[in-house]
Design a protein around this nucleic acid. Structure first.
Length: 478
RNA sequence: UCCCUAGUAGCUCAGUUGGUUAGAGCGGCGGACUGUUAAUCCGUAGGUCGUAGGUUCAAGUCCUACCUGGGGAGCCA
């Protein structure tokens, strides 16, 4: 007999023929004569209720049907006599495939804290919350490929191991096969990387952008979607040492095209979640509402599904940096000296400023553009004013920066001059500069933090809860 | 990395101005119960109070350092 998944079973009408189910026990309840088993197989959030007449089974069999155990059931799909579900399965045969010692199994049929489940990340998939989160994670990954594929973008695999240390996007993880206790040294006493595996110093990538530009200036429109590594000592709810990033890079796109793409792309992903993950979203929303009850009214956030729809229905605000500074300097918190950090043209906006703009002033996603050139990367397109660059940061409520991108500087001379000013070694990046030497064109791109998108879509508060096995400072468990 | 905060049973927590044998709910186990919905009821086991020092007649409680978690900040996606 072929196994049927619970997701499909719950769509079916009650019928006479037998069905075969396999899954993990969430709870077992019951009385002297009858046991009720809530069975889940991961195919959907809902459990199916398996009803077992105690007299039909060995005592030992039912004794081993405990929370966490894997079982196989053959039974009849019938209309339920109880009120919690439409159909249920009357068990005719029941086998315990893998018992779970109830004295030791850590996941109890009750509410656990997210912190506890994080420490048991290998088992947290077996909870409603995390199974919902990771089904949505899958759906979002799928949506991203679907979006770019239908727009004619090519999925480009950029290297994870890189020799270029010139991207300036922060601390990198070194990749080496040298003996850490006794590395070969040069005459000057430095580590001799010419003897290392690649014959030079190498690191894990912090961005696939530069290689993406190589692809875009031939294939037209490309995107990367892969792991990214940053060795920053960041301890926040929105940073990981290993995370997944989507980086589209497009020839012939100027900043406006770049913004249009970013907005359309984010809205496509959110729409996809609403169309395909409603059961999980409703569950996460209810869970969130429970949590919000303990907060004061003013701090409560919008209901999850309402919030997703709100983003879909409203245009993102596009605001130049200079204008944002004016808004902030005229704001109540600025005048009442409520901001902890100063607001001055030329300095980067702090979290408190971004949150004011997004959550209080505009009350919708904001794309800030045209930042002062000195606080942005060397590769960004220099604006005619000589002071700003064509950068864009997409800011979302609660999460902050979800996308960072720009139009790229395509002029060889301007780019090399800027690299020189910012101390970026041009000689090591000859391969990159070739894009500007030969057939250079206006082009643009951005980076989307996949887990930050998931924070928004799932409503989870900590980025460690939207990636299966989070890597953060002092934590590489599992 | 900085600031704040926490660490007591498998889980979530209580534990008074330092004072006798460290408590509850849930979960586990045993039993009861005519179909339950986080079932209910009765009973029962379960603890090196994060680690190492220190103060004191006496430390879960006070002090110091370290470890780990959480919140915020910085860095960013």
């Amino acid at each position: 007999m072929k196994r049927i998944k619970i997701k499909d079973l719950l769509q079916m009408e009650a019928r006479d023929e037998h069905v075969l189910l396999k899954g993990w026990v969430r709870t077992k309840r019951g009385s002297k004569n009858v046991n009720f088993i809530a069975l889940n197989d991961g195919s959907c959030l809902a459990n199916v209720q398996v009803v077992a007449d105690v007299n039909n089974f060995e005592e030992d069999t039912l004794k081993n049907v405990t929370t966490g155990a894997a079982i196989s059931v053959v039974g009849e799909l019938v209309a339920s006599q109880g009120s919690g579900q439409n159909v249920e399965v009357i068990a005719k045969e029941l086998t315990v495939l893998g018992p779970a010692d109830p004295d030791k199994y850590p996941i109890q049929p009750k509410r656990h804290t997210l912190e506890f489940l994080r420490e048991n990340a290998h088992l947290r998939f077996r909870t409603n919350t995390f199974s919902a989160v990771f089904r949505i994670r899958h759906a979002m990954a799928f949506a991203i490929h679907q979006y770019f594929n239908q727009k004619g973008f090519y999925y480009l695999h950029t290297p994870l191991i890189t020799a270029s240390d010139a991207e300036g996007a922060g601390q990198m993880f070194r990749v080496s096969t040298l003996d850490p206790k006794n590395p070969p040294l040069t005459e000057e006493g430095n580590i001799d990387y010419s003897q290392d595996f690649f014959g030079r110093s190498t690191n894990l990538t912090v961005s696939g952008q530069l290689e993406g530009e190589l692809g875009a200036t031939a294939l037209g429109e490309v995107y990367t979607f892969g792991p990214t590594f940053r060795a920053e000592n960041s301890n926040t709810t929105r940073h990981l040492a290993e995370f997944w990033m989507i980086e589209p890079e497009m020839a012939f796109y100027e900043l406006d095209d770049n913004m249009d793409l970013a907005e359309e792309f984010l809205k496509f992903c959110i729409q996809y979640a609403l169309d395909n993950c409603m059961e999980d979203l409703v569950f996460l929303s209810k869970r969130l509402q429970e949590e919000e009850k303990s907060k004061p009214q003013a701090e409560r956030s919008m209901e999850l599904i309402e919030k997703l729809k709100f983003v879909l229905e409203n245009d993102f605000v596009r605001c130049p940096y200079t204008e944002a500074i004016d808004i902030l300097r005229n704001s109540k918190p600025f005048k009442k000296k409520k901001f902890q950090f100063p607001v001055e043209w030329g300095t980067d906006l702090q979290s408190e400023h971004e949150r004011y703009l997004v959550e209080k002033h505009f009350k919708r996603p904001v794309i800030l553009i045209d930042y002062p050139k000195d606080i942005k990367s060397f590769y960004m397109k220099q604006n005619p004013d000589g002071k700003t660059v064509a950068a864009m940061d997409v800011l979302f409520p609660q999460i902050g920066e979800i996308i960072g991108g720009s139009q790229r500087e395509e002029d060889y001379e301007k780019l090399v001059t800027r690299m020189d000013e910012m101390g970026v070694p041009a000689e090591e990046m000859d391969w990159f500069l070739d894009t500007r030497r030969y057939g250079t064109v206006p082009h643009s791109g951005f980076g989307l933090g996949f887990e930050r998108l998931l924070l928004f879509v799932t409503g989870m508060g900590n980025i460690r809860d939207v990636i299966p096995f989070p890597r953060t400072p002092k934590n590489a468990e599992f």
